[in-house]
Amino acid sequence: MIRILLLSLAGACAAGIGLGQAQALRTRAALLLALRAVLSQMMDAMLLASMPLPALLRGLGDGGHGARRAVGMAMVRAGEILETSPDLRFQAAFLAAVGEQRAGPLRALRAGDLEALSPWLALIGEGGRDQQRRALEGATAVAERLEREANAQLPAQVRLCRTLGLAAGAALVLLLW
């Protein structure tokens, strides 16, 4: 009886890992979409309202839920880091904030996503309005591309992860029986 229970548990774990991977892929796409929304909000606040960066970042934590809230809270945290260490740049503060939340909802973002955004994030908060427009447009375009790629790969990858997880679970049960 115990053997059957242990085997079932092992199978369920393998299947769960597969399903978890599939969910992480969905979350990554949602986070990239949320990042685009936040960047667009930043562009409006910077260029239309000339809002200073710390106040702007504080405001990004309001509203939203799920991925949008997670990205907003990372921005709020980046603002806090910038205010305590003004000699840091926005990019460093944002990466530190994301790093702190990697154990949380932002863990679905890949290191490659942040690397691709890096050149544009480095320009945020530095220079005049034209530079900010270019930086935010550049970052938005990269986020959009990553999100499109993620969405395009999503169905196949989700299917693969789910199938592999379930197959691994079943195989484990059969092998250990």
Partner: peptide, 19 residues
């Protein structure tokens, strides 16, 4: 330049007229 950026709260874009 970094000192100026920090003094401007990394918001030189909002202080462009003054600058």
């Amino acid at each position: 330049q970094s000192t100026l950026a920090a003094l401007c709260d990394h918001s030189a874009y909002a202080r462009q007229e003054e600058i």
